[in-house]
Design a protein around this nucleic acid. Structure first.
Lengths: 98, 98
DNA sequence: CGCTGATGTCATCATGGGCTGTTACGTTAG
DNA sequence: CTAACGTAACAGCCCATGATGACATCAGCG
């Protein structure tokens, strides 16, 4: 299980950023407008997302466009789905206690 | 997006507990053995998981069996999958920056 | 039935890490 | 050169984690 990605997505602001980036590529100023958070704060979170490989950057003049990489999120969704199906399949398994 | 569930799964120990419970129902003492963590610590994490509706309890005499409820995890996996597919679909959308 | 040991929960507290804000610096358009 | 955009480094605050101790519950036994 990819705890790194999970931890990153668990923060409200980062989750909002990821949701915004899922719809379209945005530069930092757009994200600042949408979220109302401080720019440096957004930049910090974007750095974390970048280091984890969750987003891609594309400098365009003065601006930096951010794009979501679906790869990691897709893999995480698959892992969670498998976990859920495993649980549903072995719901009657019970290890004896004493 | 269910940040509550996400946050709960993002902790290493809780993730391990969930992974163990996905395979079979266990009582607390089993989880203590498998993880090597303190019992009260396990109990605290199980309480958090219980309050979020991620696990079910089934008292059996002196012991308490815990079972994973796949529902929330399944829903989360679906949401993440949809997010990833949305991102993959709109990868060329780009909002113009002034 | 009363006692004892084991299991599990709850309440409380200290510590560490993450989030946020401030400041400073690099970079690019005009 | 100036202003705007973005990043990086640093400090403060808060919350979650983990540990300790006390309490409730149940099986086993005399």
């Amino acid at each position: 299980m990819d705890l790194e990605t999970l931890k990153l997505l668990a923060d409200p602001l980062r989750a909002q950023i990821v949701a915004l980036l899922a719809r379209e590529s945005l530069c930092v100023c757009h994200i600042v407008e949408e979220t109302g958070a401080q720019q440096t704060n957004i930049s910090n979170h974007l750095r974390a997302l970048r280091r984890a490989g969750l987003v891609d950057t594309e400098p365009s003049g003065r601006y930096v466009y951010y794009r979501l990489r679906p790869h990691a999120i897709e893999a995480l969704a698959a892992q969670l789905g498998e976990l859920a199906s495993t649980a549903a399949r072995s719901s009657d398994q019970k290890r004896p206690c004493p």
